[in-house]
Amino acid sequence: MSDAARSVVLTVLVTVLGTGAFWWGTDGFSAFTAETARRADILRAPRPLPAAVLEDQDGRVFRLDDYRGRLLAVEFIYTRCTTICRSLGMAFKQIRDRVPPDALGRDVALLSISFDPERDDPASLKIYGGSHGADGEHWRIARVRDAAQLQALLDAFGVVVIPDRFGGFEHNAAIHLVGRDGRLVEISDLEAPLQFAEKLAEAL
């Protein structure tokens, strides 16, 4: 083979392999960030969640598994958060208000999980819930006290929490839907609570 032909063949080969690698690595040129990848991944393959013991705003201890058989909307927050968690709280309230009253509690529940169990004791959880309109029954605010369980839960949901410089946290915020079988089935943008509510209504 001549040098020129060799060069052309290898260039084509590298281009094909490189394009293939990018296709594979970005889910068909659709997911360039870890966040879109996480959402696409969940849609394709609903993910089982690890067991976790939670404590709610009234100090009641329960398990994530207790929600099996119901649709569960989950958000991750910390109560001192003044920015994105507010939007999350608003979005959650909009969703709650759109669930048919007879289904709320029986077939649909909402859960806000704090990833800052050190500072978010039941009292602060209660204040947070009150300010966002959570009733503490169908929409509970809870924390995971065991650090290992919390990390496993965050990992399974794909939530990354990093401390910022002001004693707070930055985290990828979204609304998560856990199916009746206890698996994470969908992650929605918090900008689109109405669509999420529609999907919930369809699944009823």
Partner: peptide, 21 residues
């Protein structure tokens, strides 16, 4: 195969590590 295939390889590999993901 000379310079061209290597340059193409560099472009692909370096672009990869520029992806936020």
């Amino acid at each position: 195969g000379g310079a061209v295939p290597y340059v193409v390889l560099v472009v692909f590999a370096s672009t990869w590590w520029m992806l936020p993901r």
